[in-house]
Design a protein around this nucleic acid. Structure first.
Lengths: 151, 151
DNA sequence: CTCTCCACTTGCAATTTGCAAGTGCTTTGA
DNA sequence: TCAAAGCACTTGCAAATTGCAAGTGGAGAG
């Protein structure tokens, strides 16, 4: 297997701290994580929509996290194509590429969260055809953005 | 495909908020995230080892997060088999099952973190054989725990 | 020309964090 | 036997972050 080259003699990859540390800086914040979910899975694109999420983010924190995510190259801030005085936040490719990781976490949570609203079959379906599941979400995102931007 | 049943007429799964919210409660905390990484990828098991991570968690926060992760059923707290007066934290099956999501995040971060120490080939290798990559980490964890517990 | 909507910003109290020092228990070494 | 060291925390406190409520400025509608 190709990845054998990554392992050290003790059997541990000696670099594995770094990429996870990077991920922790973004995902390891509850609000960034949930905004990413709203954009990638719920098709939300506006300040109003984010504010309406059931977790109840407050306005100052929302503004702060939106600019953080913009600075990190995850979101772009653009005038709303439907109404120039409003604003839309679109996911960049970098954000879109996070989708498989997010879906993985959904699969895990579906299995262990007793309060989950997701049917148990979701994990099975994903394991059956992970690429198909992700492709469906990607297509959904494209649909949302096409509807908004027409491009 | 099986998962078609999960989608609503508007094309959105109407439940997708919940499992991610559950994940956000655990992973959406920088320190829990990094402790999970230390246990799943770095083979760390003791308070001392966690404290030594380069991110520099402070002692009170470490104690707090260890008990949070124990309460969440992610870690078990047990006497160190090598030295009864010391303590080990072992990942439960629930934590171990989080590994694919963590590896997904590593793949993503490897692609976008300019400071990454991981070779670019990691993402390619993972895409080549995701199950093999994860299986390798699972085997590593088993090795660590076998070495410690002998069971 | 006012009223409303929108996307924030500000002020402030409350919570959480980080740091330094201390605690109690066990083991180690002289 | 008994002081010294190690371990896994706990405590106190200042500093940073958060949550809440209210306010601001600009565009668009009536």
């Amino acid at each position: 297997m190709i990845y054998i080259c990554l392992m050290t003699k003790t059997g541990k990859p000696d670099w594995s701290g770094c990429p996870t540390r990077y991920a922790a800086g973004i995902v390891g914040d509850k609000w960034c994580f949930l905004l990413l979910r709203d954009v990638l899975l719920h098709g939300k694109r506006t300040y109003r929509e984010f504010l309406a999420s059931p977790e109840g983010i407050s306005t100052n924190i929302l503004a702060n996290r939106l600019s953080k995510l913009e600075a990190l190259g995850m979101f772009t801030r653009e005038p709303d194509p439907r109404k120039a005085s409003s604003v839309c936040y679109f996911p960049t490719q970098k954000a879109k590429d996070f989708l498989p990781a997010l879906v993985s976490m959904m699969v895990w949570a579906t299995q262990y969260d007793e309060m989950t609203e997701a049917p148990a079959s979701f994990a099975a379906s994903f394991n059956d055809d992970p690429n198909g599941t992700i492709a469906w979400y990607v297509a959904e995102m494209a649909r949302v953005d096409r509807a908004l931007r027409g491009g």
